[in-house]
Design a protein around this nucleic acid. Sequence first.
DNA 1: GCTTGACAACTTACACTGTAAGGTTCATTT
DNA 2: AAATGAACCTTACAGTGTAAGTTGTCAAGC
Lengths: 229, 229
Amino acid sequence: MDASSKKKRTRGKLSREMIENAAFEVIEREGLSGFSMRKLAAALGCEAMSIYHHFPSQAHLYEALVDRLIGRLKMPDPDLPWRERMRIAVLDYRRIGREHPAFATYFLSYRMNSPTCLAYINGIVGLFNDGGFNQEMAARLFRAIGYYLGGALLDETAGYAKGPSAVTTVSSEQLERDFPNIAAAGRFFSTAEFDKTFDLGLEMLLDEMERIRDGTRTANAKSDNLREK
Amino acid sequence: MDASSKKKRTRGKLSREMIENAAFEVIEREGLSGFSMRKLAAALGCEAMSIYHHFPSQAHLYEALVDRLIGRLKMPDPDLPWRERMRIAVLDYRRIGREHPAFATYFLSYRMNSPTCLAYINGIVGLFNDGGFNQEMAARLFRAIGYYLGGALLDETAGYAKGPSAVTTVSSEQLERDFPNIAAAGRFFSTAEFDKTFDLGLEMLLDEMERIRDGTRTANAKSDNLREK
DNA sequence: GCTTGACAACTTACACTGTAAGGTTCATTT
DNA sequence: AAATGAACCTTACAGTGTAAGTTGTCAAGC
């Protein structure tokens, strides 16, 4: 018989960390929708259900992945100028998203509630408080900058740089002819332009935040009340 | 036998429009991940495979849904002041996302390439051109505003307002004690505050765009070159 | 050395998914 | 009346997450 020669069961082989590492790899290789517990198991050289001994569900595993990414983020040095601290915090977050483009899709719509993530968010909100804003403005600016950051990451990781998702596509000749504005703008939409575009928007928001803090934002703010309804 | 009494086959019942309408309903009722061709068929009173006669795949169906949402958007009146045109365009897009919160998740990472969607994008890029920016700046600002808009929609439709996605959550007592900044900011994170927060960020970006156009953005822009690396 | 217990990993099974392939029904045209 | 072809249904397959039950392996106590 000697059935043991066929399957080399190395006991205690698996661990949470090993599984997490493999999960990151499989997700990036197969894409988030192509990821499955069975493929993860194959990468680990075990059966799918063995993973459930370490993570009670796929959701728990995903949560651990988010925690690991967020948990490694450090708050920027408080001795730096505030604007620089804010910039670093934003770019740090963007970096971990860019490092895991396939996982970012999940990451970005994940509503963080683990202690690790809450500690991070608490620190970032504190950074806005340090900027000299009152609680309301700190809260709203936190959200507004987060919108920009999240939207940029979504586009940079899942956007046009990955090619069209449409089933029916348009030839570049037709694009040039029928949609000239897009054709003209297209060259600034490439992956190589991501940093420059992101920085432009980020600096715009940083400028405005400093204007709000310094009370020098009187120019066009009046039009805020022009909204219908 | 009289098998016809059991199943009332009403021929020509289905149509692309009917299927699309039902799809929007089922998606919003079941959530995007809870949506399936079989559930859609059940809502339509037909079998799953009947849908494939009208849409060759689920992806084609989704694409049609995106096209329908985008296709109904009109460019703002060109006679309005430019800032107002831009504001309306942004809010229109946000509105259709908010009207289909469950579908928005798909919508936001969908890379539009259908003629309908390209026509829309072409119009919006043209709106930036009308603002008096050169091609490069128009392209980058289009993207930057899109980042803000997309991130906001993602958060408003899939974010914290839907409750935590984490499997392990933290009690409100612990939140108050360990994460005071979040607790303090929390009241401005509610659904009721969405409009006000969105408007703040939008007006910030509109302000900055006008500064860029008018060349009055000299204040802090110098720090743009402080980036490491 | 032997037994026991606990735990880690595996096996099986179920209800679900999208959709390929092919069969059936029926309104319309000839 | 016969034929056509669109519209719809049935069946089947390979994939999914995971509940439930089983087996293999190692360490401790006798």
